[in-house]
C-alpha cells in the first residue's frame, strides 16, 4: 500500500510539472498584457519600465524558470491588476467556490442516489420514466441558460429568492461561510441547484444502472432468501455495491465542479474563484490565470489520489490487488 501511494505521488508530481509547462506556455502565447495595463497616454519610456518591472522582456524559458523557481517557494507571482499575490487572491475566493461546490455535490448525492435506486428498482413505473426523462434534460440543457431561467422565475417573477451575491456570512476559523445563515442559504440555493443539475443527472443515471445490474445478482436473491428486510437489502447489500462506480465518478467530478463553476458563478455573480478567473481573463492578468489553472491541476491530482484510496476502502477486492503490487 505504501509503495502504491509513493508511486502515485511521483506520477502526480510529473503530471503537475508537465501541466505547468503547458499552462505557462499557453498563457504566454495569448495577447499582450502590457496593452491592457499601460495607460493610453503613457510614453515609450514608461512602457519599457512597465515591461521590465513585470519581467516580460526576458525570453520564454527564463520567464518559465523564474516562474517555476518562485512557484516552488509558494509564490505564484503578483496580480497585474490588484498588485496582490495571485495565490492570496485565489485563497480569498476559494471558500465561496468550495462551499458552492460542496452544496452542489451534496444535492447531487442526496437526491440522485435515492432517485436512481428508485428508478432502477421500478424501471417500468411512470415515476421512474419521469425521473429518467428529467435527467436527460439535466444533461442537455446548458447551465447558463438554466441559471438565467432560474433567476427569471424564482427571483424576478416570483421574488422568492435573491438573484445574485453571497448574502450574509459567518466566520468559522476566519473563513466566511454562507451555509450557516438563513440569508446566506437563500443566496446559495439557486446557484447550488444550478451547479448540481448536471451532476445530479449523472448520479441518477449511475445509481440506476448500478441498481439494475446489482438487483439481479444472486447475492441479492440470497440475501432475500435469508429473510432480510427490504430496507437492509437495499440499504446495505445493494447500496454498497452501487457506490463503487458512483464514488469513483463523483470524486473525479468534484474537481470539475470546482473548476467549472465558472459559468454558474458568473451568472449568479457568486464571488468565487470562477468569477475571479473570468475577470482575470478579461484583463489578461497572467499570474492569476496561471495560478488558478495550476491550482485546479493540483486539485485534480489530489482528488484522483483520494479516490484511489477511497476505492480500496469500498471494494475489498481492490485492496488485495494493491497489496500484491
Amino acid at each position: 500500500m505504501t509503495v502504491f501511494v509513493i508511486r502515485r505521488l511521483l506520477q502526480a508530481a510529473l503530471v503537475v510539472l508537465i501541466m505547468s509547462l503547458l499552462v505557462f506556455g499557453g498563457v504566454f502565447l495569448v495577447g499582450d498584457p502590457v496593452e491592457m495595463l499601460v495607460a493610453d497616454d503613457a510614453d515609450q519610456a514608461e512602457r519599457e519600465m512597465m515591461i521590465k518591472s513585470m519581467g516580460l522582456d526576458l525570453p520564454f524559458y527564463l520567464q518559465y524558470l523564474r516562474f517555476i523557481g518562485n512557484a516552488l517557494q509558494g509564490d505564484m507571482g503578483n496580480s497585474f491588476v490588484f498588485q496582490e499575490s495571485a495565490m492570496h487572491l485565489i485563497a480569498e475566493r476559494m471558500p465561496a467556490t468550495f462551499e458552492l461546490a460542496f452544496a452542489a455535490l451534496f444535492i447531487a448525492v442526496v437526491l440522485g442516489i435515492p432517485l436512481g435506486i428508485y428508478a432502477g428498482l421500478n424501471a417500468n413505473s411512470w415515476i421512474s420514466k419521469t425521473i429518467m426523462t428529467s435527467s436527460i434534460l439535466g444533461f442537455s440543457l446548458p447551465t447558463f441558460w438554466v441559471g438565467i431561467m432560474m433567476i427569471l422565475f424564482f427571483a424576478v417573477i416570483m421574488g422568492w429568492l435573491p438573484s445574485s451575491g453571497r448574502g450574509d456570512t459567518v466566520n468559522v476559523f476566519g473563513i466566511p461561510i454562507s451555509l450557516l445563515t438563513l440569508d446566506g442559504l437563500s443566496h446559495m440555493l439557486l446557484p447550488a441547484v444550478n451547479l448540481a443539475l448536471f451532476k445530479l443527472s449523472m448520479v441518477i443515471r449511475l445509481a440506476r444502472a448500478g441498481t439494475r445490474e446489482v438487483v439481479h445478482q444472486d447475492y441479492i436473491k440470497f440475501a432475500r432468501a435469508k429473510g432480510l428486510s427490504d430496507t437492509r437489502i437495499i440499504g446495505v447489500h445493494l447500496f454498497k455495491n452501487i457506490m463503487i462506480p458512483v464514488v469513483t465518478v463523483l470524486g473525479l467530478e468534484f474537481g470539475g465542479l470546482v473548476a467549472f463553476s465558472v459559468v454558474t458563478e458568473t451568472v449568479f455573480a457568486w464571488p468565487g474563484m470562477g468569477k475571479l478567473l473570468i475577470d482575470s481573463i478579461n484583463f489578461l492578468d497572467r499570474p492569476v490565470i496561471v495560478a488558478y489553472l495550476m491550482f485546479v491541476v493540483v486539485l485534480f491530482v489530489c482528488i484522483n489520489l483520494i479516490v484511489d484510496v477511497l476505492y480500496s476502502v469500498l471494494d475489498p477486492r481492490v485492496r488485495l490487488q494493491e497489496m500484491k503490487s
Binding site: 444472486d218 447475492y219 440470497f222 435469508k226 429473510g227 447489500h237 454498497k240 463503487i244
Partner: peptide, 25 residues
C-alpha cells in the same frame, strides 16, 4: 414470507461464486 425465509425455510444456491455479497465480510 420474510419471517419464514432463512428461519424456517432456507435455500442454498447453485453458484457459490455469486451467492455471497463481494463487498461485505
Amino acid at each position: 414470507m420474510r419471517q419464514l425465509r432463512g428461519n424456517n425455510i432456507a435455500m442454498i444456491f447453485q453458484d457459490p461464486m455469486m451467492t455471497l455479497n463481494p463487498v461485505l465480510r
